[in-house]
């Protein structure tokens, strides 16, 4: 019985260590992909004005990219994708509502 308990505890701790290790590897991959995506979005938002002549569409595109970038930072870098929903929604609400308000000010 005691040996069985030891075996369970040992293998469980090893399992959790292994789980944590895999999570860190996955997290590093996610961070790297997110970083590359953020860099690409930044360059696109800087030069998007060269291909979009319509002012409203240009502003909407740039602000939509702000939302996409904000979402990446909140979910991946801040790790709020794994946090309680309230905090994730609060931060995502910020990067949704603020660009919307700014967009309305510029476009209307």
């Amino acid at each position: 019985m005691a040996y069985g308990r030891y075996a369970l505890d040992y293998s469980l701790s090893t399992y959790l260590c292994d789980l944590t290790f895999m999570q860190i590897i996955n997290s590093n991959k996610k961070n790297t992909l997110s970083w590359l995506w953020l860099m690409v979005l930044t360059v696109i938002s800087t030069f998007i004005g060269l291909v979009i002549n319509n002012k409203a569409l240009f502003i909407a595109s740039v602000l939509f990219i702000v939302f996409l970038k904000g979402q990446q930072i909140i979910d991946i870098f801040m790790e709020l994708a794994q946090a309680p929903k309230f905090w994730r929604r609060l931060l995502l609400g910020y990067v949704t509502l603020l660009p919307l308000v700014i967009g309305f000010i510029y476009i209307l």
Partner: peptide, 23 residues
């Protein structure tokens, strides 16, 4: 643009640092 790219990169390294600390 350069400043945006530097801050994103800096944030990326902080995220990696946190992962290293978790490990």
């Amino acid at each position: 643009l350069i400043n945006t790219l530097t801050l994103i990169t800096s944030s990326f390294f902080v995220a990696l640092a946190l992962n290293a600390m978790h490990a």
